Simulated assay, not measured.
Amino acid sequence: MAKAHHHPETRDVQPRVLLAFGAGLLLFIALAAIGVKLIFNTAPTWLPLPANTNPENPGLQTAPKQDLAAFRAEEDRQLKTLGWVDRNAGIARIPIDDAMWAVVSHGLTDWSQQTAAATEPDNCALLTTAVPRAPQAESCRQQDGTGR
Rank of each mutant, 00 (worst) to 15 (best):
M1V: 01
M1I: 05
M1A: 00
A4P: 03
A4Y: 01
H7G: 05
E9C: 00
T10W: 05
V13C: 13
A20C: 06
G22K: 12
G24P: 06
L26K: 06
L27M: 09
F28C: 12
F28Q: 09
A30H: 15
A33R: 13
K37H: 13
L38C: 15
I39K: 09
I39M: 13
T42G: 15
T42L: 15
P44W: 14
T45A: 15
L47V: 09
L47E: 07
A51D: 08
N52I: 03
T53S: 09
E56I: 04
P58F: 01
Q61L: 02
T62P: 04
T62C: 11
D67Y: 14
A70S: 13
A70L: 14
R72C: 02
D76Q: 07
D76R: 01
Q78F: 15
K80D: 06
L82K: 15
G83I: 01
G83S: 10
G83F: 03
D86Y: 03
D86L: 04
R87K: 02
R87T: 02
N88T: 04
A89E: 04
A89M: 02
R93I: 06
M100V: 13
M100H: 06
W101T: 14
V104S: 08
H106R: 05
L108Y: 00
D110T: 01
W111P: 00
S112Q: 02
Q114L: 00
T115V: 01
A116K: 09
A117R: 09
A118S: 11
P121L: 07
A125C: 11
A125R: 12
V131F: 13
P132V: 03
Q136C: 07
Q136S: 12
E138I: 10
Q142T: 08
Q142M: 05
Q142I: 05
D144K: 10
D144M: 05
T146I: 13
T146N: 07
R148D: 14
